[in-house]
Amino acid sequence: MTIRFRKYSWQLAPGQLRDIRQKVFIDEQNVPPELEWDDTDEIADHYLAVLPDNTPIGVARLFPALDETGHIGRMAILPEHRGKGFGEALLRHLMAEAAPQFGELRLSAQEHAVPFYRRSGFHVCSDVYDDAGIPHYDMRCLGPRLAMEALPDNAYPAILGVDQTSWLFDTEGRMLALMDALAGQARQRLWLYDRLLEHDLYDRSRFRELISALARGHRLSEVRLLIHDDKPLVKRRHKLVELMRRLPSRIELRLTNDDYPLEDQPFMLVDREGVLYRHDFYKPEGFGKFADGGRVKLLSESFQRMWDAGRSSLELRELPL
């Protein structure tokens, strides 16, 4: 059965929208009313899902935050309409609405709903926490456009260790979306090999935030940056280098040794499964994969050989913080 979606501001939202939230969150889940009704309602777009006969069955809201991030929340389907795919349809409608505006989507998921959101390309990015007496996890989708391109045929799009799709790219924008989607799911390691740490690629605020979260959030995390030339880093302040020098035990940079064999193509490895591979140092062309353990193992061995033969950057070490 198809459903339709209507969008409202809070001031013009019909009573059915409030009624559904009252029934699901306050009456069914015992959320205190003072937590359910908050100031965010005033700035959010509100969505009402209805059947062909205009029967209201579900609601959700979408609102903007800083750094081109959209937040999805207050998703609810009435009990008698659950298990029919309506929740998934509502979520993906919000993602389609948000994708042209936001490079990242976030939401707070009740523990039991985590698999539901993963099927649409969201991954967990926090420890469990209590919200209104209910266990929750923060989840994010770092490539909503990628997810919408893959859905509905590809379940778990861009989920590390699960999605076996070869994601091709030939533009910088698509490459960066794949890079962030991979880096944002790293739990232990991120190894990067390139000619330079180009500012347009690696000195972006979102990429730095993802690297910082990995380095600070996991005791055994390891970020390795292996490059051919550090002179541009010395000439121009690179915030990723500043981060490296503040977290020297978690983030390390080395220069390649030209006396030893080097790979002809740049790549990024994430944990034991994820890879972003470019065909050329100078072009944004290549592919990303989220579940390719065999390729990652081979490239890891090559990276390790280059890393062992590499050397520290004396110039960067002597730069003041």
Score class of each variant (00 low, 15 high):
R21A: 10
E68V: 03
V59S: 06
L66P: 00
E301F: 04
G161M: 13
F303V: 09
R61P: 07
Q22D: 09
D53G: 04
R118C: 12
T256E: 00
L262V: 11
Q265C: 15
R216L: 14
R246S: 14
G83T: 11
V296E: 06
G288L: 06
D203V: 09
Y193T: 03
I26A: 12
D180W: 12
P64F: 12
L168V: 08
I159Y: 06
A13T: 06
R236W: 03
L298E: 14
A158I: 02
L146Y: 01
D131I: 01
G286F: 08
G184F: 13
E88V: 05
Y129N: 15
R61C: 05
Y129R: 12
D130Y: 04
H81W: 15
T165F: 04
S205F: 01
A213T: 09
R311Y: 09
D308A: 13
K297P: 00
Q16F: 02
V124F: 04
Q304Y: 11
I72H: 04
M244Y: 00
R61E: 05
S300Q: 10
E273C: 08
A183E: 02
S205E: 11
W307K: 08
V31Q: 12
R208M: 10
A109M: 03
R82I: 10
H136K: 12
Q110W: 09
R4L: 14
Y117A: 13
L299Y: 03
V162L: 09
D203M: 02
L220Q: 15
Q164K: 15
S120H: 01
P52N: 07
G85R: 04
W191Y: 15
I26K: 02
L197V: 07
C125R: 10
L94G: 01
N257G: 07
S249V: 02
L17M: 11
R82Y: 10
